[in-house]
Each structure stands twice: as C-alpha cells, then as structure tokens.
Computed example of a mutant assay.
Amino acid sequence: MVRVETNTGLKVECALDTRTYHKGVKVSDAQMAKLNISGDAFHPEWNYTITPRNV
C-alpha cells in the first residue's frame, strides 16, 4: 500500500490488486437498478458515486 499526502492536504492511498478477474461478466439491468449510484455533473458516465443501500 502506498500513502501520499500533498502540500494542500489531499490524501491518496493505492494498492496493486493482483487477483484474476473473469472477462465478459455481464451485469443485468435489474442488478444495475438495485445500485444506489449517482452520476457527477461533470461526465457522469465516468464520474459517479455508489453509496450503500438501505436494506
């Protein structure tokens, strides 16, 4: 894990994920509809937030 802090106080953490993931996994429209996802005002197709659902 790498942790960096800028002079202005931005803190960033990153780690390399070496796991193997299957290609071509499809997410159904029903599964997508269950996500609590909201797009950002700037390029919502790239920038979005997923928050926990109230179960």
Rank of each mutant, 00 (worst) to 15 (best):
M1V: 14
M1L: 08
M1S: 12
M1W: 05
V2N: 13
R3D: 11
R3H: 10
V4G: 04
V4R: 07
V4L: 05
V4P: 00
E5K: 12
T6F: 02
T6L: 06
T6K: 00
N7K: 10
T8G: 05
T8A: 09
T8S: 12
G9E: 14
L10G: 01
V12R: 03
V12N: 06
C14S: 13
C14D: 07
L16N: 12
D17Y: 01
T18V: 13
R19W: 02
R19K: 09
T20Q: 11
Y21M: 06
Y21E: 11
H22N: 12
K23W: 04
K23G: 09
K23H: 09
K23I: 05
V25R: 04
V25F: 00
V25Q: 03
V25T: 10
K26P: 01
K26G: 04
V27D: 00
V27F: 01
S28N: 05
S28F: 01
S28Y: 03
D29G: 04
D29E: 14
D29R: 03
A30D: 14
Q31Y: 01
Q31G: 04
Q31P: 02
M32H: 05
M32R: 06
A33W: 01
A33Q: 14
K34L: 11
K34N: 14
K34E: 15
N36F: 03
I37C: 05
I37N: 00
S38Q: 12
G39K: 04
G39W: 01
G39E: 05
D40P: 03
A41E: 14
A41L: 10
F42P: 00
F42L: 11
E45A: 09
E45Y: 05
E45S: 08
E45Q: 11
E45M: 07
N47G: 06
Y48F: 15
Y48A: 12
Y48C: 09
T49V: 14
I50H: 00
T51D: 07
T51E: 13
T51Q: 13
R53D: 15
R53C: 10
